[in-house]
Amino acid sequence: MAKVRLLVIVSSALLAVGLAGCTAGEDEPAPLPSTPVVQLGAPGEPNRTLSPSEAAGLGTIDYVEEDVLFVRDMLHHHSQAIQMTGYVEERTTDGDIRLLAERMQVSQTDEITQLETWLQKRGEPVRDPDGDHAHDAQSMPGLLTDDELAQLEAAEGDAFDELFLASMIRHHEGAVQMVSDLYASGGGQEPEIDAFARHVEADQNIEIVRMQEMLAER
Rank of each mutant, 00 (worst) to 15 (best):
A16T: 01
A16E: 06
A16C: 07
A16Y: 04
A16S: 11
V17F: 08
V17G: 07
V17N: 05
V17R: 10
G18F: 01
G18V: 02
L19G: 14
A20T: 01
A20M: 03
A20K: 01
A20L: 13
A20I: 00
G21C: 02
G21M: 05
C22D: 07
C22I: 09
T23P: 00
T23G: 11
T23C: 11
T23E: 14
T23H: 10
A24D: 08
A24S: 10
A24Q: 10
A24C: 03
A24L: 13
A24N: 09
G25F: 13
G25Y: 15
E26G: 08
E26T: 09
D27A: 13
D27F: 15
E28C: 04
E28S: 09
E28I: 12
E28V: 13
E28D: 06
E28H: 09
P29G: 04
P29M: 01
P29D: 03
A30G: 04
A30F: 12
P31S: 09
P31I: 00
P31H: 11
P31Y: 09
L32V: 05
L32T: 08
P33T: 05
P33I: 05
P33H: 04
P33R: 01
P33G: 05
P33D: 03
P33Q: 02
S34T: 15
S34K: 07
S34G: 04
S34H: 03
S34A: 12
T35C: 02
T35V: 00
P36S: 06
V37N: 04
V37H: 10
V38K: 15
V38G: 11
V38W: 13
V38A: 14
V38M: 14
Q39S: 14
Q39E: 14
Q39F: 14
Q39R: 14
Q39H: 14
Q39T: 08
L40T: 12
L40H: 11
G41S: 08
G41M: 04
G41W: 01
A42W: 11
A42T: 01
A42R: 03
A42G: 14
A42Y: 12
P43F: 06
P43K: 02
G44M: 02
E45R: 14
E45L: 14
E45V: 10
E45H: 15
P46V: 00
P46S: 11
P46I: 00
P46F: 09
P46Q: 13
N47M: 10
N47D: 15
N47Y: 12
N47G: 10
R48F: 09
R48T: 13
T49P: 00
T49D: 01
L50G: 07
L50Y: 11
L50M: 07
S51R: 12
S51F: 03
P52C: 07
S53A: 15
S53I: 13
S53K: 10
E54G: 09
E54L: 10
A55H: 07
A55T: 04
A55E: 01
A55V: 12
